[in-house]
Nucleic acid binder design. Sequence first.
DNA 1: CTGAAAGCGCTTACAG
DNA 2: CTGAAAGCGCTTACAG
Lengths: 339, 339
Amino acid sequence: MVTMKDVAERAGVTKQTVSNVITGRVHVSPATAARVRAAIDELGYTPNLVARSLATGSTRTVGLIVPTVTGSFYSELTEEVEDVLAVHGYHLLLGTTRLDGERAKQHLTGLTSRLVDALLVAGDVGLTEHLPVLADARFPVVLCAWEGEAPDTLPVVTIDYERAGFLAGRHLRELGHERVAVLGHPAHAPRIAGFRRAFAKDGITVPDRAVHFAPEPTPAGGIAAANAAFAADPDLTALFTTEDLLALGALEAARAAGRSVPDDLSVVGHDDTMEARQLSRPALTTVSLPKREMARQAIEVLMRAVTTSEAPTNALQLLRPTLIVRASTGPAAPAGRGQ
Amino acid sequence: MVTMKDVAERAGVTKQTVSNVITGRVHVSPATAARVRAAIDELGYTPNLVARSLATGSTRTVGLIVPTVTGSFYSELTEEVEDVLAVHGYHLLLGTTRLDGERAKQHLTGLTSRLVDALLVAGDVGLTEHLPVLADARFPVVLCAWEGEAPDTLPVVTIDYERAGFLAGRHLRELGHERVAVLGHPAHAPRIAGFRRAFAKDGITVPDRAVHFAPEPTPAGGIAAANAAFAADPDLTALFTTEDLLALGALEAARAAGRSVPDDLSVVGHDDTMEARQLSRPALTTVSLPKREMARQAIEVLMRAVTTSEAPTNALQLLRPTLIVRASTGPAAPAGRGQ
DNA sequence: CTGAAAGCGCTTACAG
DNA sequence: CTGAAAGCGCTTACAG
């Protein structure tokens, strides 16, 4: 394996000079620089990045922890992170938790040892309890896509999930809906709270029995939850699902139950995924989250901390969601149908 | 920052002894081992992995290059790779190409410098031309999910794509279809060739004008391509799409054109994605690929090469696809409809 | 079972 | 502008 010393000998200089022409930190006379470059080419030399990392204390790698890379939300976030990193010349070390606390912990401890210059943790499920592991991490950490309670010691760039739910609820209220149900996941409590707030403003409470947790975050899970909701309240006129895939299942369940959307039933989703945009019939009204923007800002906070080697401020940055009205929502039917 | 030397001083031993208790390579007396461990805890010492990597020559990281992490095929592959890696105690460095040759090249060259112990390249689009960059890589490389021509210098673990297309075609032939069209992408030439072979066996040629390339690999792209196919041959009775998402679009286009599936039109997809399983109406007949198995085998070949430090044999391993018959295919209609 | 030495391949002040 | 030295924090034979 050819090293800097080999190049130096070949070019008739010392290895420091070779280092200088490679890093460009110190000016080298054009003549010797050319000799060095020639030697590099002839020998097919490539620098050993591990050695460089040890000397500089930087691996030019950042770690990203996400729940999964399946499903458009986190995969788009991952690609956005990768893009921003590439601009800065950084590599991406990826770990997925699969919503499993043990896996999350393993990743957290595994990265504690200077393998990465910084760490971005996206998604809080199963992670919150293991965050203390990071207490004496010697690199900056930022949290994003954080829906639960975030520790106030760390900077977090996330979305105003409560508002996302509120937007969905307000839209339904404006259409006159009163009897509604929520299909979701326990981890989405803030969205659900926001949704409820929109109704509470008008003195309408969305009772706990109107909140149905789906067995899995898939269309099949949505079908099951929707059927449960129909059974619990045959007179409901609208559904808010905390994930688009659940909404697609709900649409299917409505069809099977003979409920026409949006005439008999309005459905609003959450995330504005590709599935919502291209596969739902009717086209799904949903809440769109600025995920790419969030990824970009989170990683920028991280990169700033890395390049300035100052700890980032532990600010909480909240990005605003947007409601996208399509064809799955309409005015509340004049009366219940009690089918 | 606390180092091994600090721990050694605290425990009253030399740093080599500390190293010995950490690596476990050399037996250390229980008494001193306990002292060392205590010192580690008190000081909150964690080993510097970069220094270890430089000394051992291994980073315990493998690189994975995929076209994208959006869409279920490569994201499931990525998670499978991650799982196998975790078993071996390895980290995952991820790079996506987005089907862009330039990005691919950057990743390839970026990893050339001992940052990774091994490299898995999944998906050939835009990559083949840049593979020579890897010529003097000092770590094992394996190719997978390789549909185009693979260089015979590297081991490849892939799927028999030609057979995948053949299975789709044979199924349609067994149902009596003769006038068919293909919706796909130029990079899927092998699947298309296999599909054609199934018809050629019975003396039926699928002409070039029956092959329609979709503008994009999405349902919208599928709609466009399906409409082109209907226009080119109003009498066709079946469609093979080289990706499930195109099939979903085709189903939509058929509905819009008043063609009932599978009575008037049969549709067979490719990949058996979540969308095909849960979102298609009627349920999509498709070809299932053993992607997780492929990922597992590819990474095992890599890990074997890494642990034995023998170059892997440049074998070509072909995994077999399976046809999943659901509800979108049926017997060919007795006569064309010429609508 | 423990210690002294050398080395992994770079970079970073610091002299000249 | 170039060279000699020290150091990044480990591991790996090799003595004792």
